[in-house]
């Protein structure tokens, strides 16, 4: 974009900064919302609160995805790991009556184990990330179905004689599924923001973050300059798995059940969020701030289409167009 100002001028630099571009895409979507406001519904706070709640699960997945994409990798298994974790968490806390302090870490560990396995295949056996995580995506989905017997795990527990007994959902389900500050913000949104903050600190402030960027920029150069490439990759995929499991817990508490089909296709939304934010699929460039932006942009887009009761066909076409538009818009930057 040439604005006719000398390239060194401040304005020009501002226009070229990735954060500005990401913000501009978000602003565009919000502007659309202001025009098509569905009789003023778009201007009410609870619309925004509901959007934030809905996008939180996808946002948590996108946090992990950002770490992996920065290393120029990809994790297709996030949706399946989400499903697995939702099933495990429901099984443990709804049906087996485990306390939260046991159920939550167990699920997170299971998710991290899935991620570490993918990471191990990639770092140790040099399997391409796309293929290794594709295998994990299929495997974890199968595991979720096997653990649950193909059924949703809910508060209805089947007894030996085939009848059902209803259990009260445990406290952890009610707390995580509720809203705070006078009903103004969902707990899952706070979990999303906390995950985003942790990933931000990791990428921007810690040594591991710099190593991930270095690997994404040029893996060989990173190796030669002493970056522990395998260990760093392993950690990135492990964290991605852990965050997927956290998203799975958030999904289960919102649905009040563990659905073995939960999260199918969510990996694509997570990737879209990262890319719309402006993180490069080639690796080495990007950040958590951008992903947060991308999450909001996708969230608002879905909310606006839903508020106006736009038909499914139009919705899909518009979403495709807007993704391309946002990415093209960002491509101009150096």
């Amino acid at each position: 974009m040439n604005l006719g100002i000398s390239p060194k001028s401040r304005v020009s630099r501002l226009f070229r900064s990735p954060s500005f571009r990401a913000l501009a895409a978000l602003a565009l979507v919000i502007a659309i919302g202001c025009v098509f406001n569905a009789e003023g519904t778009f201007f009410r706070w609870h619309t925004h609160r509901d959007m934030l709640r809905h996008i939180s699960v996808f946002g948590i997945l996108a946090c992990g995805m950002t770490l992996v994409i920065i290393t120029s990798g990809i994790d297709l298994a996030v949706g399946s790991v989400l499903g697995l974790s939702a099933v495990l968490f429901s099984l443990f806390s709804l049906q087996l009556g485990w306390p939260a302090w046991l159920a939550v870490p167990t699920c997170l560990t299971a998710g991290a184990a899935c991620g570490l396995t993918s990471g191990g295949l990639i770092a140790r056996f040099k399997i391409q990330p796309f293929i290794a995580t594709l295998a994990m995506m299929v495997f974890a989905r199968g595991l979720a179905k096997w653990v649950s017997g193909g059924r949703k795990i809910s508060t209805a527990v089947q007894l030996a004689d085939g009848s059902f007994e209803y259990r009260e959902a445990p406290g952890v389900f009610r707390i995580l599924g509720s809203k705070l500050f006078g009903g103004n913000i969902a707990v899952v949104t706070l979990i999303f923001l906390a995950c985003a903050l942790v990933c931000y600190v990791l990428l921007a402030r810690l040594r591991l973050g710099r190593q991930l960027f270095a690997i994404g920029g040029n893996e060989e150069a990173a190796r030669l300059s002493g970056v522990p490439v395998s260990a760093a990759k392993l950690l990135a995929y492990g964290l991605c798995g852990l965050l997927s499991a956290a998203a799975g817990i958030c999904h289960a508490v919102q649905e009040q059940q563990g659905d073995p089909e939960a999260g199918a296709g969510y990996e694509l939304t997570a990737i879209a969020i990262v890319v719309i934010g402006g993180t490069s699929m080639l690796g080495g460039k990007g950040g958590m701030g951008l992903t947060l932006n991308g999450a909001m942009a996708i969230g608002y887009l879905e909310k606006i289409l839903s508020l106006n009761a736009v038909g499914e066909a139009t919705r899909l076409m518009l979403t495709g167009l807007i993704i391309v538009g946002a990415v093209l818009f960002q491509k101009h930057r150096k």
Binding site: E39, S306, L307
Partner: peptide, 11 residues
């Protein structure tokens, strides 16, 4: 369904 219902409730 939950997302669509939220929209209906707001409107």
């Amino acid at each position: 369904a939950r997302r669509e219902m939220e929209s209906a409730l707001s409107r």
